[in-house]
Design a protein around this nucleic acid. Sequence first.
DNA 1: CTAAAACCTGACACCGGTGTCAGAGGCAAG
DNA 2: CTTGCCTCTGACACCGGTGTCAGGTTTTAG
Lengths: 156, 156
Amino acid sequence: MRIGELAARAGVSVRSLRYYEQRGLLTSVRTPSGQRQYTEHDVDRVRFIQGLYAADLSSGTIAELMPCRDAPSTHNSDATLERMARERARITAQIDELLRARDTLDTMVAVARAHRETLPHPAPAADEPAAAPGPVRGGAAGEPVGRPVVGAGLRR
Amino acid sequence: MRIGELAARAGVSVRSLRYYEQRGLLTSVRTPSGQRQYTEHDVDRVRFIQGLYAADLSSGTIAELMPCRDAPSTHNSDATLERMARERARITAQIDELLRARDTLDTMVAVARAHRETLPHPAPAADEPAAAPGPVRGGAAGEPVGRPVVGAGLRR
DNA sequence: CTAAAACCTGACACCGGTGTCAGAGGCAAG
DNA sequence: CTTGCCTCTGACACCGGTGTCAGGTTTTAG
């Protein structure tokens, strides 16, 4: 398939695919006229790349890890294993930070809600039908925030 | 205290503090000569800001949330509450992506380890004293990766 | 008083992944 | 052949938080 189709299949932009190739994350066979030709296999590969990008791995790091994915038997140097371990630690630390930030937000929401109950009519906000002031209701948008206040921890 | 001390106390650079002020996240009282003057309170405030930065909230979003932290009783508009809910959802989604990426890394590590056992001497790597090939050894760096293979889930 | 250290403002650079534009060439359908 | 879409390369812009430098003022220690 050509680059446009791969982009659509993998859910990325054409620009990104060319960039991945330039960075050595992705290779392509060229037709005589110079157009890139991809296989089904490359769809998975691009998704794999995206998954690591989502975890903030740099293109360089991903490039180092790719051969280990493609041919585990020939590429698993100590350096690469150690890089994986380091990235893993970084990811875990980041998860912790995200959990803390989420708890912070939850606390702020809970406080704001409490104030709404205390002062029922500071700004009625012509928006939703005012959500029964009695029992605390679910979130206004997205996940049900509930009333986690502080100990939300590893929930979900 | 002056800006240098605040920076040291909060663990950020002086440059960042000036930037926060420029973005409206932080205010300062100025001495007659123009030097910024901070209070103990500001240490917590900067740490709060850092916590949200760590979760990839933009300075604009943080700026919108700050008054809600400082004076919950007067600032808790529907728009702000909704923004909090949206950020919360984003954070949760990001946590999921990190967890997936971490599992991916774990799987790769496990596969690489398996290959090491299968082929004990493919490339002795003149690096470390070859780490007893028998029982699987702990991680070379960082968290003990163990052998999670696939179902690592919410372990931490 | 003097010298060092800290502070001030303003400006420019960087990073990395992506968007976007320009100009040229390829390819399939009418 | 022509038309329209896709692709090619190369280049520049952007974003946001931070580093860093320059040139000048303030504070503090000796």
